[in-house]
């Protein structure tokens, strides 16, 4: 059996990659994918811990997260699409209307 720590480290690495993606990339679609990566990193740790602890709760939550992620993907992509139509760009630096 693979030790739990392996899973968690992998989850942590994936999450960090996601965070870096959100913080550093400028293309909103990439940012969006990075967010998905973060979600799935968490999912991974949930599943791993569920198996480790012999409880189904974690797996259950993963389904929720996946459902939410799916909805988010739909809504988020729609928003990005609309923004692109209106402003001809998906660069995060240029989407700063909520500014002082």
């Amino acid at each position: 059996m693979v030790p739990i720590s392996y899973h968690l480290v992998l989850s942590g690495v994936l999450f960090t990659i996601g965070v870096m993606g959100v913080l550093l990339r400028r293309n909103t679609i990439i940012i969006f994918m990075a967010i998905e990566l973060m979600l799935n990193a968490v999912n991974l740790s949930f599943v791993a811990l569920a198996r480790h602890l012999g409880s189904l709760d974690g797996q259950l939550i993963v389904f929720f997260v996946m459902a939410v992620a799916a909805a988010e993907a739909a809504v988020g992509l729609a928003i990005i699409l609309l923004v692109f139509r209106g402003r001809e760009t998906v660069n995060a630096d240029e989407l700063n209307l909520l500014r002082w």
Partner: peptide
């Protein structure tokens, strides 16, 4: 205080982090 509010989501995310 509102200088903090750059409008760039990534900056918010960074401060969040």
């Amino acid at each position: 205080l509102r200088l903090w509010q750059t409008g760039n989501v990534q900056v918010y995310a960074l401060s969040f982090l």
